[in-house]
Structures are given as structure tokens and as C-alpha cells.
């Protein structure tokens, strides 16, 4: 029983950064902005969060710093794509390239240092409950925040007036502009929210998941988060489901790589053989599973062309220059 609880806990830890980054990108894309810089903002959040946590000794300040850095980085993107109407795909890419380079440069002095870790929740009486105790009441604070974010974003997009406006802008910026809505202003806010989330996701990587700084530690998670948004057809709850599926794949392949085959020697043939087969695969193949799974999932989702077109925000990635 205990092993399953700990596996579920590690899956939640792996899924949380994906979930947070994807929720942020979802809001930006609902407003019609495609920000391919998630990976860059995330890694900047990771290095900033680690650095601030290490220098001040407080992981909380680390989290705050990561969020601020994420927002600042997203502002750079927003200024380019919204104010100067540059190509969103290319600008997002340059944000990622810049983020990977800058984080590597800033992080050189952090390599190998012991980091701060955000403490897990500990409620006397509740956390020590069998099975559900640690799952519900003993995880890291950012995990709870990620669930709260899903609920809040769902409410915001589908129950609030501002959310409705945001979605209208994403579907037709010209109509929204004709109604006198500040398209650029709303989009700035949406992109900044995405940046804050990506920064927070980075903080989770370097302050919870593996409390240390490793170059390129985001390892493509920002890109997987982008794929999750498509997979979820731009719906927050489906992002949650997708993030946990990918978390499970990520953790699953790590567990299989670490498993000791001899401990299954006494198991029945039907258990031993499949495990032996998987163990005989090269570890690099197992490591590539999350990326291959992303491709498979994208293909499955996009096969239905009509459904995809119905769900995609209609003015996604289209530059908008208000006519005056």
C-alpha cells in the first residue's frame, strides 16, 4: 500500500510543474496569444527561484522571485508581439533561446550547491492519517496552489465577465476591438499571467522537485505544457487530466529504469517476463517515452479536424494592430 501512495505522490510532484505552466499558457492562448517561450520563462523561474532561495535562505522568497522573473520575461514577449506586432512563433522561440542561455550563464555559480526546499504541508492529526493523509494533507504548497489555479481559471474563463471578454478577444480580436475593448491591454494581462505561471512552475522544479540547480533542468517540460494545452482543447480540467497522465509517464519510465529485476525472480511468469522485457530496452528509449507520448497524443487529438477547429481560439497567433 505504502509504495502506491509514494508513487502517487511522485506523480503529483512530476505533474504539478506541467499543470501550472500549461494553465498559464491556456489563459494566454484563450486570449489569442501563442507564447512558445514557456520553456524559457520556466527555466528562468527555476534559476531565479533557486538563486533567490539560496541567497536569502528562504524558499518562499525564491518562489516569489521566480514568479516576478517569469512576469518580467513574459513582458518582453508581450512588448514585442503586442506593441510591435512581431511574429508570435519566432518571438516565442527567441524567448526560449534567450532564457536557456541566460539561465545557464546566471546559474554557473549555483551548480552543485545545496538548495532550499519548500516544506511539505503538515497538519497535526490529518497528515498522519493512513493512506489519504499524505496525499491530501502532506504535499508541497505549490501542489495545492496548482489545484486552486485550475478551479480559479475555470471560474474566471467561464463564469466571469472579464473571462468572457478574454475569450471573445481570443476568438475575434477585430470584433472585440470594434466593441471598444482594449485588445492589447487584455492580452498583456493574459501573457503576464502565463509568465507568472511558467515562473512558478520553474520554482517548483528547483525548490521542490529537485532542490538544486542543474542546467537545462526543465528538459522540455515547457514544450510538453504547450502540447498539453492543445491536448486539452483549451479546457482547464482536461489540462489537469493531461498533466497527471504525463506525470505518470515521466515517473513510470524513471521507476522502470530504477527497478531491480531480481526482486521479481519469485513472481509468476506473467509478471516477470513483461518486466524483464521492458528492462531489456535501452534506458534512452524509456527516457524518450514522454516526448514520443506527446507526439502520439497530439496526433490523436488533431485527427478530428472539425473538433480541433471548433476548439482553437480563432485568432490564435494572429498579430493585431488596431486600426484607428
Amino acid at each position: 500500500m505504502d509504495i502506491w501512495v509514494s508513487i502517487l505522490l511522485t506523480i503529483a510532484t512530476a505533474a504539478t510543474p506541467l499543470l501550472i505552466a500549461a494553465i498559464g499558457e491556456l489563459v494566454a492562448e484563450r486570449a489569442g496569444v501563442l507564447n512558445l517561450g514557456v520553456e524559457g520563462m520556466m527555466i528562468m523561474g527555476a534559476v531565479g527561484g533557486f538563486g533567490a532561495g539560496y541567497l536569502t535562505g528562504s524558499p518562499w522568497i525564491g518562489v516569489l522571485a521566480a514568479i516576478i522573473i517569469g512576469v518580467l520575461f513574459s513582458l518582453l514577449f508581450a512588448f514585442m508581439t503586442l506593441t510591435l506586432a512581431t511574429n508570435q512563433v519566432a518571438t516565442g522561440l527567441s524567448l526560449t533561446i534567450l532564457g536557456l542561455g541566460l539561465s545557464g550563464m546566471l546559474g554557473t555559480s549555483f551548480v552543485g550547491l545545496p538548495g532550499q526546499r519548500l516544506p511539505n504541508l503538515d497538519i497535526p492529526g490529518l497528515t498522519s492519517l493512513p493512506v489519504v493523509g499524505r496525499l491530501l494533507f502532506g504535499q508541497d504548497p505549490i501542489f495545492y496552489l496548482s489545484i486552486a489555479l485550475v478551479i480559479a481559471v475555470t471560474w474566471f474563463l467561464f463564469r466571469s465577465r472579464t473571462g468572457l471578454t478574454m475569450r471573445a478577444i481570443g476568438d475575434s480580436h477585430t470584433s472585440a476591438h470594434a466593441l471598444g475593448i482594449s485588445v492589447i491591454g487584455y492580452r498583456y494581462l493574459a501573457v503576464m499571467f502565463g509568465g507568472a505561471c511558467a515562473g512558478l512552475a520553474g520554482a517548483h522544479l528547483s525548490l521542490v522537485y529537485t532542490p538544486q540547480w542543474v542546467e537545462n533542468m526543465s528538459a522540455g517540460r515547457g514544450w510538453i505544457a504547450l502540447a498539453l494545452v492543445v491536448f486539452a482543447s483549451w479546457r482547464p480540467w482536461r489540462v489537469l487530466a493531461g498533466a497527471y497522465i504525463f506525470g505518470a509517464i515521466w515517473i513510470g519510465q524513471l521507476h522502470v529504469q530504477a527497478i531491480d529485476l531480481s526482486s521479481f525472480a519469485s513472481s509468476s511468469w506473467f509478471i516477470y517476463q513483461p518486466i524483464a522485457l521492458i528492462k531489456s530496452l535501452p534506458s534512452q528509449f524509456l527516457s524518450s517515452l514522454p516526448y514520443l507520448a506527446t507526439i502520439v497524443v497530439l496526433v490523436l487529438i488533431s485527427r478530428n479536424k472539425r473538433l480541433t477547429m471548433m476548439n482553437t481560439p480563432a485568432s490564435l497567433a494572429q498579430p493585431f494592430v488596431p486600426e484607428r
Partner: peptide, 12 residues
Amino acid sequence: KLARVFQGMLLF
């Protein structure tokens, strides 16, 4: 890593 920073800035 400075090279990458320069490259990113250049594209921007």
C-alpha cells in the same frame, strides 16, 4: 553560455 544570450538578443 554568453553566446546563446547574444543569439537570443539578436533574434529579438
